[in-house]
Amino acid sequence: MKCVDLRSKFSLYIDGALSDLEMALLDGHLSDCPLCREELDEERRLRSDLRRLGRPSIPPAVAESVKFALRERTSEGRPSIFSTSVSDWIPMRLMPLGIGVAASLVIGISFLSMMFAGARSAGEIISSDRGRDTRIMLTPGNAEGLSDISPTEYARSRMSVAGESPSINPNGAIVALTRSLVGSRMRDDEVVVVANVLSNGLASVTEVVEGNSDAKTMADLERALQADGSNTPFVPAVLDNRGDNVRVVLKFKTVNVSTRTGSKR
C-alpha cells in the first residue's frame, strides 16, 4: 500500500480507532518509513495542541442566569408572571440598535390570558422604562381594557422618559393590532422595524429589520402605524413633550410565560 493511502488512516491510528489488522499494517510500515513517521508526529502534535487550546470558562453570571431561569420554571419559587427573567429575556434579544435611533420600543405579546387576568387588573399596561428602552407587555387581558386609560393619563405616567420614547396611544391602532396578533398566535419569532414617529402620533416604517413571513401581518402593521383620527398609534407629541420627529425601533415579540403546570413557548 502507498504512503498516501496509509496516511489517511493516521488520525484514527493515533486515536486507537483502527482494527488490530490495520494497526499492525501501519506499525509495520512506520518502522520502515521515516517520512510517514514524521507525518504521524505532525498529526500527534496537532491533536495534542488542540487539547491544549483551552476551554473557555463560563462567566459566573451566565451560570447564575441559567439557574435563575430554570428555577422560575420549576414549580417552586416562581415570583410572578412578569418576573425578572422575562424582562431580562427581552433585552438579551434586542437587536443592535442602529445609528441615530433615538429609542426602542419592545412590545411583548403574552399568550397567557387566564392567569394574567387574575394577576393584573384589566387596563393596566406594564411598562418598564430604563434609559432609552421601553418595554411594554400587552396581553389579551390588559389589551382589552386599555381603552379605560386616556392617552393623556398614560403619557403623564411616563413623563420622565416620554421625551425620547414616544408613548403608544392606549386607544390606538397598535394596541388593536397586538390584540389581533394575540388572537392569531403570531407564528414567527419577532417583527422588528425602524419607524419615524411624527408629531401627530402617526408613524412610518423606514426599515424592516426583521419581517414576518405573513405578508398580511406586515401590511396590518403599516396600516396601524398610519391610522389617523383618534386611533393614531402614538399619542401626539404635545402630550409627551417630545420632538416632532422621533425615530424608534419597534419590536413585536411573543413573550411566553410559564404556567404553574409547566412552561409555554
Partner: peptide, 9 residues
C-alpha cells in the same frame, strides 16, 4: 426539583 436543576447547571 429546583435544587436538582441547580446541580444540573
Amino acid at each position: 426539583d429546583a435544587d436538582a436543576f441547580d446541580r444540573f447547571v
